[in-house]
Structure formats: structure tokens, C-alpha cells
Design a protein around this nucleic acid. Structure first.
Length: 480
RNA sequence: GGCCUGUUGGUCAAGUGGUUAAGACGUCGCCCUCUCACGGCGAAAACAGGGGUUCGAAUCCCCUACGGGUCACCA
């Protein structure tokens, strides 16, 4: 039997990175076995619904290379794939369960339900309408009293299932509440409709976050009540974040950017994001390799590599992955991304291409370009301390001499390239019996006015061009 | 609080009764070098605690501690 998995998000906002990871694992599980992957939109909560959220989900899957065989937009034999378009189906199946005695009408008011809770807001339904007589139900229905349909849980015994990650999980049935299947507004709840959909869509492996680990027996009972074969469950450890005090908790906004789009906007590459999150909660067998393309992941992914414990999302490591991906980018693709940013920021006359090349190994995200080139964009204020360098034994005075000395020579250079400039300055150092390092230091600092720069003296001069370079050096001499 | 579940360096994570307990990020040091980055080399750093089982436990069992999840007309 071939594997069918699905990703079933609610369109309630942006694509959380934890959700994306769930989608990825679900996708990989089916694709590693040549199976099918379905996208289903779970929009039964009309209150939390956010306009445009479905588009964000689809766009994210597209950008990350998680392609689905069935779903909104692409169709399939089991549609529609948006739950709000499947309402009659749920109603029909709910009624079946009422008829077979596995579900019942409940007329309890919101106030009554509220009164059942303790001071912590904990406490659920008490089964008040569980055994209403037929007459009573008819009477309430006729009177137009709002109702919900609840699943009738067994009062005794226990329910077990085997999770592919956590092993056998057993819950006492007494722990189970008679949960609502159909809400008063006629919409089904997740608890009910996802089971119906998974069955109807032929889903064989349910991959989801481990917050569902303890409610899964309820869903198993639903399958049993319908006489359907239960799917295989694969619950994933949660993704955590760490706050400034070092406390871990479910990854959320206060830990930083948590949506895929935020990360992309911050200059991270989709490939790097996918690669990194693939390794958060899963690791490949028989290899220490950490770099994987989507195609490679499809080949090496297996459930045995899934871990049970929650993983802390580490922005540092993501950053490292991203820098590696940037370094691996072929020149053309790198320039395609970097050059527009540089063009926008830099004044005319700057050799954008050369500057981009210098930055290639020096940025971890494309957003960092801006931080690196402030000294190019404008002439920074003079700081005399910069001219003092212990290793090269330079002082402001010495630097002034060096600059005055090499200026005429530089003005005579016609081939303003890194190689020529480097050779010329080296020669100048030799002629004046100075260390090359000292000369380079003086020139670099004069041109950049910054201690740490992405590139050496001659590389920067090449970026600035002859005119700007000479001008900056003259300016430095005057100030010293 | 009840129930479920987890716990290997700061973080990710290999390990399925016998290992000097991998590897990666980060940190630190050295080398390379026109500063930085890249690259190369190296170092520090872990089996939550306590009982068992066993000739032998990170690995199996129990207890404790701590973490997380869940107890909705949210998913």
C-alpha cells in the first residue's frame, strides 16, 4: 500500500516555522516512499480566519519546494480540499454517529459550560445531555433550541494506539470528554472533521505536532465507531524557543522571527531554512552530512531518524547554514540577489560588482550587506585612533608621511585595478623601507575610515575608483 | 492539579548492554593574511539524580527532580 500524507493548516495568519517543519516532515515521509501528499485547508473556525492566509500557505509551500499532489488549486479525486466547502459531508457523517449511538445532541448553554470550570479555567463537559430521551430531544429541536453534537466516549476501559515516534500511548477513557463534533453554528470541529477528511482522502499516515498525542485516542475511537481502519500516527516533538533568561518555551514571536516570510525578509534563503529545520527533530542514518537539498531529503528521510524530545530553534545555526548557502551560490545567482541591494545603497561611481564579490564570503544573510557598507555609502567621521596600529607600528604621524609619500605615485597609476595597486604600494613600501603592512594600513584606514573593512586597502580602492580614492586620501592627509 | 510525554556539552545531535561517548553550530587559541571574512589546525565542553537488573550500563526496570504537552462551540 502506498503512503498518503497530508498537511492540514488553519489559515489563521502567517506560516509559523514549526508548521512548516510539520509540513516538510509530512511531505518527506510520503515522498521518501514514493507516496502522495495532500494539502487541506482547515478553515472551520470562522472567528480566527484571516484573509489571505491561505495564499501565504500556498506561496510558502511553493517557495520551499513542497509540492502537493492534491489540494486547492491543483485539484484531485477527493476534493474539495477546503473544509468550509465540505460542510454537508460532516453533517452527514455526524448524523450517522448519532444514529449508531456514538454521538448525541447536546443543548447545554455556554453559561452552563462555563460554570463547570474551576478557578484555572480547567474542567470540561460533564455529560449532562448524554442520556436525553428521544422525546426530550425532539421537543428541544422543535423549540429551536441551539444544539451541538457530541461524541459519546466510553465511561470505562482505556484506548491505546501505537505512535511511530512515541510508541504505545494509552489513555484511560475516563479522561476523555464528550467532545463537540458539530458546533452550534453548524461548522464541525477539528476533532471531528479531520478524521472524516483523513479517511475520505485516503490518508494513511497522520503527521502532526505532539500537542495531539493525548487527544489521539478520541480520534481512534471515532475511526472505530465508523468501522474504519485507523491510520498510522506520527507525532512530532515541538519546536521551542529560548528567551533572554534562558527559559525554553514553545517557539513564539518573543524569540524572534518565527514565520517563514519573516525569515525570508530578513535575508534567509528558503533552501537554507528548509535544510536547517529538517535537522531539528530528525537526523539522517549512517551519515554525518548536514547539507541536503530537497531531492536528497526525499531520498534519505526516514521515520526512524525522528527524535522524541523538543528542539530549541537556534538562530545562530540557521545563520551559519545561510552563510554556507550564500557561499555556495554560483556567481550569477549571488549577484542576482546582491547587486540590486548594492545598486540601491551605493553612490554612483562605486564598482558594485567588485564590492559584491568582496562581500560574498562576509555576509551570512543578504540583509547584512547594508551593515557592511556604511563606509562606502558615506564618508565616515575621522577618528585618529584608527591610524595607530601596534602590529604594523603605525601612528597618525607615520600614516601621514606614508599617505603623502604614495599619493603622487597613486595619482600616476593608470590601471586602477587591485593587482596593479597592490604591486605599486608594495613597491612603494620597499622603496621607502617600510613594512608593506604599514603602508596598507595607512591607505586602507584613510580610504575607509573604519578599522574593520570587507577587503584590503587595494581592494577597497578598486571599489571606490580612482577619483574617489584619491580624494579620500587627500582628505585624510589634510585632517592628520 | 489529573493525565500523557520527554531528559547525552550552551544549542542541534549520533549512540539501541562492552566506544578514548561521534559530528555540527557557537565559544576560545594558533596558522594563513594589506584589517576583517573565507580557509586550515587545535582546545574546552555532556550521558539530570538515586536505586536496582547484569560480569558489564548513556543504553533495560523502578523512584525522584526538572522540562514540555493536554484537559475549548481553537486547531
Amino acid at each position: 500500500m502506498s503512503i498518503v500524507t497530508r498537511f492540514a493548516p488553519s489559515p489563521t495568519g502567517f506560516m509559523h516555522i514549526g508548521n512548516l517543519r510539520t509540513a516538510l516532515y509530512s511531505y518527506l515521509l510520503s515522498k521518501s516512499k514514493d507516496g502522495k501528499f495532500i494539502l487541506r485547508i482547515e478553515d472551520t473556525d470562522q472567528v480566527r480566519l484571516v484573509e489571505g492566509a491561505t495564499d501565504v500557505i500556498i506561496k510558502t509551500l511553493e517557495m520551499t519546494g513542497i509540492d502537493y499532489d492534491e489540494g486547492p488549486g491543483v485539484g484531485g479525486d477527493h476534493g474539495p480540499y477546503i473544509q468550509s466547502e465540505r460542510l454537508p459531508i460532516y453533517k452527514e457523517y455526524a448524523e450517522k454517529l448519532v444514529e449508531s449511538g456514538h454521538a448525541y445532541y447536546c443543548f447545554c448553554t455556554a453559561e452552563r459550560l462555563e460554570s463547570l470550570k474551576d478557578e484555572n479555567g480547567i474542567g470540561g463537559y460533564d455529560g449532562h445531555c448524554r442520556d436525553l430521551s428521544k422525546e426530550e430531544i425532539e421537543k428541544n429541536l422543535a423549540a429551536g433550541i441551539p444544539y451541538v453534537i457530541r461524541q459519546k466516549m466510553p465511561l470505562e476501559g482505556s484506548t491505546s494506539y501505537t505512535d511511530m515516534v512515541y510508541g504505545e500511548v494509552t489513555i484511560e477513557n475516563a479522561e476523555l470528554r464528550d467532545q463537540i463534533m458539530i458546533k452550534a453554528d453548524g461548522y464541525p470541529t477539528y476533532n471531528f472533521c479531520h478524521v472524516v477528511d483523513d479517511y475520505l482522502m485516503g490518508v494513511t499516515h497522520v503527521v502532526r505536532g505532539n500537542e495531539y498525542l493525548t487527544s489521539t485516542p478520541k480520534y481512534c475511537l471515532l475511526y472505530d465507531a465508523f468501522g474504519w481502519e485507523r491510520p498510522t500516527y506520527v507525532h512530532l516533538p515541538l519546536l521551542m524557543g529560548k528567551d533572554d533568561e534562558g527559559n525554553v518555551s514553545k517557539l513564539s514571536k518573543r524569540h524572534g522571527a518565527v514565520s517563514f516570510q519573516d525569515l525570508v525578509n530578513n535575508g534567509y534563503l528558503p533552501e537554507a531554512i528548509v535544510n536547517y529545520i529538517a535537522l531539528l527533530g530528525w537526523s539522517p542514518k549512517d551519515t554525518n552530512e548536514e547539507f541536503f537539498t530537497m531531492d536528497e531529503l526525499k531520498k534519505v528521510f526516514s521515520m526512524e531518524g525522528l527524535s522524541k524530545s523538543p528542539a530549541v530553534f537556534d538562530y545562530e545555526k540557521l545563520r551559519w547554514f545561510n552563510s554556507e548557502y550564500i557561499k555556495k551560490l554560483p556567481e550569477e545567482s549571488y549577484e542576482e540577489k546582491a547587486l540590486p541591494i548594492l545598486t540601491e545603497l551605493c553612490p554612483k561611481g562605486i564598482n558594485i560588482k567588485k564590492l559584491g564579490a568582496l562581500l560574498h564570503t562576509r555576509i551570512a544573510t543578504f540583509a547584512e550587506i547594508k551593515d557592511q557598507i556604511g563606509f562606502v555609502v558615506e564618508r565616515l567621521p575621522m577618528e585618529e585612533d584608527l591610524y595607530t596600529n601596534k602590529k604594523n607600528k603605525t601612528t597618525p604621524e607615520i600614516c601621514k608621511e606614508i599617505l603623502e609619500g604614495c599619493l603622487p605615485m597613486l595619482e600616476g597609476v593608470s590601471d586602477w585595478s587591485n593587482d596593479t595597486l597592490f604591486a605599486s604600494l608594495k613597491q612603494f613600501a620597499e622603496d621607502t623601507e617600510r613594512k608593506a603592512g604599514a603602508v596598507m594600513w595607512a591607505v586602507r584606514v584613510a580610504v575607509a575610515r573604519q578599522a574593520v573593512t570587507p577587503g584590503g586597502a587595494t581592494e577597497l580602492m578598486e571599489v571606490f575608483g580612482k577619483e574617489e580614492s584619491i580624494e579620500r586620501i587627500k582628505f585624510a592627509i589634510e585632517e592628520l
